[in-house]
């Protein structure tokens, strides 16, 4: 799989590899057992054993997998919470509040809009700046995205960040990440959204904080509110 760009992504990779290692062990073990049985107990034997069950053996092979499964279930809960439940927070006046979103991502058939806050530092206001098909974010920071859809269900997915979140029209979703490296990657839609689903992509650039500030102020300066609105998008 492509290299991970975030710590949360590394954890997912670690879980992914760990579970596969475990699966591989079980797979090889059971396959060897089946192979050995097929080879050993062939028709040349005189008679098959007449056994119906073996309670002790059955208890062993019920309890051990049960423990393993419960362990896996609890072991990966933290990672889930970190990715989907515990939105990053900030301190404001001694109070801890959820970090406000940096970008409002709006999905539509078949493209992406990225709305940045204008001068007032808040999204969804009059002076929002919006660009199409390019998302620029700073490195080493908790970035919160607010996800919305104009029409049908889309899914915001960046493989390199191990990020995927469906966007349901009529609902507001949040996604967050903290990129550890700068780079460029592709945003794709991961939920079938119509005939043009496969080409619903956008660029994502992770840049340094100063580069991001420069870029944002340049975009804000050059931005004219009519840009893009003549194609009929709201």
């Amino acid at each position: 799989m492509p290299e991970s760009y975030s710590n949360a992504g590394n954890t997912i990779d670690y879980l992914f590899n760990g579970l596969h290692l475990l699966s591989a062990l079980i797979l090889v073990g059971t396959m060897l057992a089946i192979g050995w049985i097929v080879w050993k107990f062939d028709e040349s034997r005189e008679q098959a054993q007449h056994i119906h069950h073996n309670t002790r053996l059955e208890l062993v092979w019920s309890i051990i997998p049960c423990i393993i499964l419960v362990f896996i279930a609890f072991y990966q809960m933290n990672s889930w919470a970190e990715n989907k439940m515990n939105r990053p927070t900030i301190e404001v006046g001694g109070q801890t509040i959820p970090k406000p979103p940096l970008v409002l991502v709006k999905a539509k058939q078949f493209g992406w809009e990225f709305h940045y806050a204008g001068e007032d530092d808040r999204i969804q206001t009059q002076d929002d700046v919006y660009i199409e098909n390019e998302l620029v974010v700073p490195v080493g920071q908790d970035v919160v995205l607010q996800l919305e859809s104009y029409d049908v269900i889309h899914s915001f997915s960046v493989v390199e960040l191990r990020l995927k979140q469906d966007i349901v029209p009529g609902m507001i979703q949040f996604a967050w990440f903290n990129a550890t490296r700068e780079g460029e990657m592709e945003i794709a839609c991961a939920e079938l959204c119509g005939w043009g689903h496969y080409k619903m992509t956008a660029r994502m650039r992770i840049v340094s904080q100063s580069e991001f500030d420069n870029w944002l102020s340049r975009v804000t300066r050059e931005y004219s509110p009519n840009f893009g609105s003549d194609d009929g998008t709201p």
Partner: peptide, 8 residues
């Protein structure tokens, strides 16, 4: 495992 499911 939901975190892994995010990816696949």
């Amino acid at each position: 495992a939901p975190p892994v499911d995010i990816m696949i």
